[in-house]
């Protein structure tokens, strides 16, 4: 865990397996020298599905690909890959400037259980602290055993304060306290942890709405962003998660965690395509610096083994 890797090489090594799995197959396929026919498309479809992009989005992508191949009169199977990449980058790209931030800001970090919310908060706090911003954390996960301790450890590591109450207390009260602390300490950014919750538990989703309302009411001058943390190993349920969380509180962006494994994280393509929610950051390890800004080009390049 100590080896210092550069920004890009980490992304690359994080996505190595992804590349090996997806890209080598694509290359096998496209270098085969065959024709551009139904078999080729079917195999491409399968490869995308294996990357967790999902049947629905994959079908759409393949349709777009077919259309462009026809329009541009492509005959060489090798060119098909470039177009495929192009299409996916297009889906993932977000017109707006991702990380322009207006201060003071409040980040609500939400997601299902075990995706890496608290760890992501630690890393995020580190990013902003390094930028010279005054960061405050709120221990809003009052449900899971020792979640408060966990965020406090991160607070210590990064060197930022954590507003907390006891386990079992009302998360809305913690956030309320944190908002007032952020105001009086003139914090630039308040990052609120929340308890992991499955998106189909109505009472917990209601609680999330309540916490959000408190920020809106008590801290109207802040710029609130709600960030969904998503585990890259998640399959098609990721789309439903995004949908349900979006219903409870507008989701402004995604942190895609655990991209350092063999999981492909292709579900973010489906989410962006269906719901328009962009990826903001990716998590590529357990270290404090293992959080990177998302870049659609790099992501797709790495996915297709084209990183130099």
């Amino acid at each position: 865990m100590e080896d210092k890797q550069g920004f890009f090489s980490k992304l690359v090594s994080g996505l190595t397996k992804t590349r090996d799995n997806v890209a080598s197959k694509i290359d096998d396929l496209l270098n085969f020298g065959g024709a551009i026919d139904d078999d080729l498309y079917e195999e491409l479809e399968e490869i995308l599905i294996m990357a967790d992009i999902g049947v629905k989005s994959t079908t759409k992508i393949i349709e777009m690909l077919k259309k462009r191949v026809k329009e541009e009169k492509i005959k060489d199977p090798k060119q098909v890959k470039a177009i495929l990449k192009d299409i996916i980058i297009d889906i993932l790209s977000d017109g707006s400037d991702n990380n322009s931030m207006e201060l003071p800001a409040v980040y609500m970090i939400v997601g299902v259980n075990g995706v890496g919310k608290t760890t992501s908060i630690g890393k995020l706090a580190n990013v902003y602290k390094k930028e010279g911003l005054k960061v405050l954390l709120a221990a809003g996960d009052t449900f899971r055993a020792a979640a408060i301790d966990q965020i406090c450890v991160w607070g210590n590591r990064v060197g930022v304060d954590v507003i907390k109450q006891q386990e079992g207390s009302d998360p809305a009260a913690v956030v309320y306290d944190a908002v007032y602390a952020a105001k009086s300490r003139k914090s630039d950014i308040l990052i609120c942890d929340t308890a992991g919750r499955l998106h189909n538990k109505k009472n917990l989703m209601d609680e999330l709405e309540k916490v959000n309302r408190i920020v809106d009411r008590e801290y109207p001058e802040s710029h609130k962003q709600t960030i969904l943390v998503l585990d890259a190993t998640t399959g098609q349920n990721g789309v439903i998660q995004a949908k349900e969380f979006k219903k409870a509180c507008d989701i402004d962006g995604i942190i895609l965690t655990k991209l350092d494994g063999t999981a492909k994280g292709g579900i973010v393509i489906a989410i962006k395509e269906e719901l328009g929610i962009p990826v903001r950051y990716i998590g590529v390890g357990e270290g404090i610096d293992d959080l990177q800004e998302f870049n659609a080009n790099d992501f797709v390049d790495a996915l297709f083994n084209d990183v130099k």
Partner: peptide, 11 residues
């Protein structure tokens, strides 16, 4: 995790 996608086999 029951929500795991295609990667479940690798793991």
């Amino acid at each position: 995790d029951a929500m795991t996608g295609q990667d479940a086999v690798n793991v």
